[in-house]
Design a protein around this nucleic acid. Structure first.
Length: 479
RNA sequence: UCUUCCUUAGCUCAGUUGGUUAGAGCACAUGACUGUUAAUCAUGGGGUCCUUGGUUCAAGCCCAAGAGGGAGAGCCA
C-alpha cells in the first residue's frame, strides 16, 4: 500500500480509511493497555499521533519503538479520541525499519541548545526548529526562482571555479591538483601554476557578478543563485565560508530601478514565507518570543517575528544617501552623548553600531543607503557627477545589518579603466569584462543578496550557522 | 585576527571562604497507571569536574599554557 505523508493526513477527513505512514518516532507514551506514538516525517512540523492497543502487538516490537526509530504504521485514520489533535491513526500493523538505541541517541525528547545541535548537525534536521528552518529555506529558494521567472529574468549559471583574482570581494580558496608537498617550481623557486590543472592559479568564486554582467549585456535581465566561497577568517554570527548568493543584473537600469527591484524582491519573498510557511513560522514565532524574553529589556525586539515580517512587507523602505545618513548620525543623541564607540565622519564606512541606530532606533524599518564615497566601494560602481561618490546601495535590515549590496555599474570604459588603475587592477586580467564596455556598453545595475541572511531574518534565528544545513566556518568542516 | 565570557553526568546547569563520600532537573532503565500530549508517580544506574603543568597538608574551586565553544568587533553578503 502506498504511503501517505503526514501533512496530507492531518487535513484529511477520510475517517475509517486504511492508511500507511512512515516516519521517525518523536516520543512514545505508554501505559498498561494503550500507547501513543508521536510520529514525524518532515512533511510538516506537526506530528501525527499513532494509537496502539498494547494487547494487539507483541512486546518486542513495542520495545523497539523508541525516540528516533524509523517505523512504518498501517492503520485506520480516525477522529481523535483525545484533546490536542483532530485526527490520529489507530494502528493495526507496525514495522520497525531502524532502531535508535535510547541510551545513545543524542536527540532526547527535550529542548537542546543550538550549540549542542551544531555538534550533531547530521541529526538536527530531525528537530522541530531545524526542520522548520529547512522547509522555509526551501520555500525561499523556490520563491527566488519564481520571482525572477515571473519577470522574465534568465537564470544564468556562473562558474564556481574561476581564475579571476581581481574582484577584491575577499580572500579566496585556492583550487589546485598539484602535489602539496612537492609542487613543481619555476626557475625563481615559486610554485609553477603553469603545470596546474588549468595552467594557471584557480580559486573558488567569491561572486558571480562579473560573469553576471556579461550575461545581462546579452539577455537583458539575468540572475545567478549559487554557492559562494570566502576564505576570510571571520568568526561572527553573520558570516560563513560557504554561503549562497543571489545576484540579479539588469541592463538599461539605473540605481533607482535597482532599488525598486531589491525592495520588490525582498517583499515578495517575505510574502511567500507568510503565505506558504504558516505552521513553521508560527512555531518559530513562539520560539523567537521565548528567546527574546531571555534578553535584557533594552536588547529585546519590539515586535514578534511574524509582526516584524508584516511591518517590512507593509512599509516602504527608507531611502537616503550616505551623506544624509552621516548628518543624521552626527546630530543623533547617542553621538552627542558620546555613546558611539567609533566616531562618525564623512568618508569612512559606517560601523555596525551606526547602521543599527539608523535601522532599529531612528527609522524603525529597512533602510537603503546610497551614494557612498568612492574610496570605500568597489571599482565597478558608477561614479556620480561630483566625482566623490558612487551609485552604490546597501539595504540594511533590523538585526541583520547589510542584507543586500548593489550598485549601478560604471559603463564608461575610460572611467572604469581609471578606477581599476586606482585600486591596482590590471586591464589584461579583466580584458573580457572590459570588452562589455567596448562593444555595446549600456547603463546597467545589479545587487547581491546573502541568502542565509535573508533566512536569518525570516526565521528569527540569531546565528547564520543555524540556517544552513551544514555550516562551513573557520576551523569547522565537519559533515 | 582582536576583545571578552564559558568548559562539572547523555543534555541544561548548581557547586559557598580551597576541606575529606561532587549535586539538581531533564533524559535513560525498572515498576505502577484505561486516552496520553515534552504524560504523571515511585525506585535505580550513570562522573577523565576540557587537557597539561604549577601553588598547597589539601584543588571542581587559585595560577600558567594549550584545546574547544559562545558573544561582540573588524572584513563583508
Amino acid at each position: 500500500m502506498k504511503r501517505t505523508k503526514i501533512k496530507a493526513l492531518l487535513t484529511s477527513t477520510a475517517f475509517g480509511e486504511e492508511v500507511v505512514v512512515k516516519g521517525w518516532v518523536r516520543t512514545k507514551r505508554e501505559n498498561k493497555e494503550i500507547a501513543f506514538i508521536a510520529l514525524n516525517d518532515g512533511s510538516i512540523i506537526t506530528n501525527i499521533q499513532i494509537v496502539v492497543d498494547v494487547a494487539n502487538f507483541n512486546e518486542t516490537i513495542l520495545k523497539q519503538i523508541t525516540t528516533g526509530a524509523a517505523i512504518s504504521v498501517t492503520g485506520k485514520l480516525i477522529a481523535s479520541g483525545g484533546k490536542g489533535q483532530s485526527v490520529e491513526i489507530q494502528a493495526t500493523e507496525i514495522e520497525v525499519y531502524g532502531l535508535a538505541d535510547p541510551e545513545k541517541y543524542p536527540l532526547q525528547p527535550k529542548e537542546h541548545s543550538l550549540e549542542f545541535l551544531r555538534e550533531i548537525a547530521h541529526l538536527r534536521p530531525r528537530t522541530n526548529t531545524f526542520s522548520a528552518i529547512l522547509r522555509i529555506r526551501n520555500t525561499m529558494a523556490f520563491g527566488i526562482h519564481k520571482f525572477f521567472n515571473e519577470r522574465g529574468f534568465v537564470y544564468l549559471h556562473t562558474p564556481i571555479l574561476t581564475a579571476s583574482d581581481c574582484e577584491g570581494a575577499g580572500e579566496m580558496f585556492r583550487v589546485t591538483t598539484l602535489d602539496p608537498i612537492k609542487p613543481p617550481l619555476t626557475d625563481v623557486g615559486t610554485v609553477n601554476y603553469k603545470e596546474d590543472f588549468f595552467g594557471r592559479q584557480a580559486n573558488l568564486t567569491v561572486s558571480g557578478q562579473l560573469e553576471g554582467e556579461l550575461g545581462a549585456m546579452a539577455l537583458s535581465e539575468i540572475y545567478t543563485f549559487g554557492p559562494t566561497f570566502r576564505a576570510e577568517n571571520s568568526n561572527t554570527a553573520r558570516h560563513l565560508a560557504e554561503f549562497w548568493m543571489v545576484e540579479p543584473e539588469i541592463a538599461f537600469a539605473d540605481l533607482e530601478d535597482n532599488m525598486n527591484l531589491a525592495e520588490d524582491f525582498l517583499k515578495y519573498l517575505i510574502h511567500e514565507a507568510l503565505e506558504n510557511c504558516q505552521e513553521d513560522l508560527a512555531f518559530l514565532d513562539q520560539r523567537f518570543t521565548k528567546e527574546e524574553s531571555k534578553k535584557k529589556q533594552e536588547d529585546r525586539s519590539e515586535w514578534g517575528l511574524i509582526e516584524k515580517l508584516k511591518i517590512v512587507l507593509e512599509n516602504n523602505f527608507e531611502r537616503l544617501t550616505y551623506t544624509e545618513a552621516v548628518k543624521i548620525l552626527v546630530d543623533s543623541k547617542p553621538n552627542k552623548k558620546g555613546q558611539f564607540k567609533y566616531p562618525i565622519s564623512w568618508g569612512t564606512d559606517l560601523q555596525s553600531e551606526h547602521e543599527r541606530y539608523l535601522v532599529e532606533k531612528h527609522f524603525k524599518k529597512p533602510v537603503i543607503l546610497t551614494n557612498y564615497p568612492r574610496e570605500i566601494k568597489s571599482f565597478y560602481m558608477k561614479l556620480d557627477e561630483d566625482g566623490k561618490t558612487v551609485r552604490a546601495m546597501d539595504v540594511l535590515f533590523p538585526g541583520i545589518g547589510e542584507i543586500i549590496g548593489g550598485s549601478q555599474r560604471e559603463e564608461d570604459l575610460d572611467k572604469l579603466v581609471m578606477r581599476m588603475k586606482e585600486v591596482g587592477l590590471k586591464e589584461e586580467d579583466l580584458w573580457w569584462y572590459l570588452d562589455t564596455r567596448k562593444f555595446g556598453t549600456c547603463p546597467h545595475s545589479g545587487f547581491g543578496l546573502g541568502f542565509e541572511r535573508l533566512i536569518l531574518f525570516i526565521t528569527g534565528m540569531g546565528n547564520i550557522r543555524d540556517v544552513i544545513p551544514f555550516p562551513r566556518t573557520p576551523q569547522n568542516c565537519e559533515f
